[in-house]
Design a protein around this nucleic acid. Structure first.
Ligand code: MN
Ligand code: MN
Ligand code: ZN
Ligand code: ZN
Lengths: 132, 132
DNA sequence: TTTTTACTTTAAAATCGTTCTAAACTACTT
DNA sequence: AAGTAGTTTAGAACGATTTTAAAGTAAAAA
């Protein structure tokens, strides 16, 4: 499925701006990025886009499940093109995230889900320190 | 150990402001909170404190390990008085966090830690949706 | 104890990431 | 082609956090 179809499937009009972003993000190579990272990539690809549009697109893409937003205590929002359930290493010093595929972790025992709720995803974060 | 000693042990001067915050946070009852939550508690305890001081204190407390900061994609920083390794349920709709004690989860298989790094903490987040 | 020093608090300003506004533009429908 | 609903944009606004710099306080030195 090409990017135009992906956008249409998600219920999004394939505008020029959304296609530029889709072509950068949805090329099969997964990455973690901020809105500013993406704007820099857009600029170096010879295009340009308002930061408001970038935020609008990222929010739409996220809400449609085309990308995810990472849980992070950094002040800047971090997005992720890997939409499969997966886990992360976090280098606490640099903030760098590294994907851990779902099969690499096995959760043996899980707590009971609170009454009235259902499990909607489990994420494991392994924090890393430089070895001494 | 009383709060004054805890601050001294952490290498922090037990100032009036830090003692007010320590008395609210380090009373044995764990909680998740924002800087603004804390300022409201300070105000309702009959005290008052500059928001800059509250942020200064929280950062010092965090860096000394007296409190933790939660990994969260909310725009406002969330702190946690539970400094033991533990996990969380997250109600994605409300943002509410519920502690899961460490023993309630068993990680059977863990991936290999990247070369040059050491594991400095594992956190599991279980996202919750309202049951349909 | 007094003096000195380093650290802390504060209000206010600044900064930063993100969202809003409202006008111009564009994609889709009829 | 005309209508309409959705989108983009620059710039303003916003909310969270940090910085500034001056005044205050705690600990150390004398
Ligand atoms: Mn955050
Ligand atoms: Mn922010
Ligand atoms: Zn990832
Ligand atoms: Zn907690």
């Amino acid at each position: 499925m090409n990017n135009k179809e992906k956008l249409r499937n998600a219920g999004l009009r394939p505008t020029k701006q959304r296609m530029i972003i889709a072509n950068i993000l949805l090329n099969g190579v997964n990455r973690h990025f901020t809105a500013e990272n993406l704007q820099n990539e857009i600029n170096s690809s010879g295009n340009s886009m308002s930061i408001a549009t970038i935020y609008n697109c990222l929010k739409k893409f996220r809400n449609c499940g085309l990308i995810k937003q990472v849980e992070s205590s950094k002040e800047t929002a971090i997005f992720d093109t890997n939409i499969n359930q997966h886990h992360h290493f976090l280098d606490e010093e640099t903030g760098e995230l590294i994907d851990i595929e779902n099969e690499e972790i096995n959760l043996f025992k899980l707590p009971e889900i609170p009454k009235g709720y259902m499990n909607s995803g489990v994420e494991v974060l392994i924090k890393l320190k430089r070895q001494i």
